[in-house]
Simulated assay, not measured.
Amino acid sequence: MTARPNGPTWPAERLTEARAVLADVAHHSDPLIRLACGVLIRHGETADEREAAQRLLVVVDARRPVQRAQREDAGRVRS
């Protein structure tokens, strides 16, 4: 069981971490980039930030080999 974060600072900290991942995208794994994009798509402060994260997610997803993407997508449907 994980502890729940205390205080009002944790959402801001997650946004800061997501922005840091995307600022240095070349040095992070695709799953981490996807996670950061998801955070910013849902919780970004501006429409531009949310849209940029959405565009980056499309690019990262396009890099996945087709068969791997199909396996991952099929796994999501079953869960």
Rank of each mutant, 00 (worst) to 15 (best):
D48H: 05
V59S: 13
Q67P: 01
L32G: 02
L57R: 11
A52H: 04
C37L: 04
A23K: 10
V25G: 00
L40P: 00
R34I: 11
R63P: 03
A62N: 13
E17V: 07
T16N: 12
E17M: 14
E13K: 09
Q54F: 09
A36M: 07
A20G: 05
A52T: 06
Q54P: 00
Q70T: 10
D48K: 12
V58W: 03
R64M: 14
I41K: 11
R19Y: 06
P5W: 06
P8V: 08
P65Y: 01
A47K: 13
A23V: 01
V60W: 01
V60Q: 09
H43M: 14
E45N: 15
R19D: 08
A26N: 15
L56E: 06
N6A: 14
N6H: 12
E13W: 09
I41T: 06
I33T: 12
L22R: 05
V58T: 14
N6P: 01
G44W: 02
Q54M: 12
L56C: 11
H27G: 09
T9V: 13
D30M: 09
D61C: 12
L15W: 05
E13T: 06
W10A: 15
S29M: 08
A18Q: 01
R50C: 06
H43S: 13
V59C: 05
H28M: 03
H28N: 08
L57M: 15
A52L: 08
D30A: 14
L15H: 09
I33R: 07
G44R: 04
R55W: 07
V66C: 03
I33L: 12
A47G: 01
V21A: 04
R14C: 14
C37I: 02
I41W: 02
G38W: 03
D30V: 12
P11A: 13
L56G: 01
G38L: 07
Q70K: 14
V60K: 03
E17P: 01
A53L: 08
V58H: 06
L40E: 00
V60H: 08
L22V: 10
D30K: 07
A20K: 13
A69W: 11
V21S: 00
G38A: 14
T9E: 15
Q70A: 15
V39Y: 03
R63A: 14
A12F: 14
V59D: 14
A18G: 05
D61P: 01
A12N: 14
P11H: 12
I41P: 01
L40D: 00
A26G: 13
D24G: 05
R55V: 07
E45H: 15
Q70Y: 11
E13M: 11
V59L: 10
P5L: 10
V59I: 10
A52I: 02
E49N: 04
L15V: 02
R50Q: 15
V39R: 11
I41G: 02
L15A: 12
P65G: 02
G7C: 06
V60T: 06
C37H: 00
R55P: 00
R55C: 07
I41E: 12
Q70G: 05
D24S: 12
V59W: 07
P5C: 09
G44I: 04
R50Y: 04
L57I: 02
V60A: 09
E13A: 15
A69K: 08
H28C: 04
E51H: 08
T46G: 07
Q67S: 10
H28S: 00
A23L: 12
V60L: 05
R14W: 13
L15R: 15
R64K: 13
I41Y: 06
N6W: 04
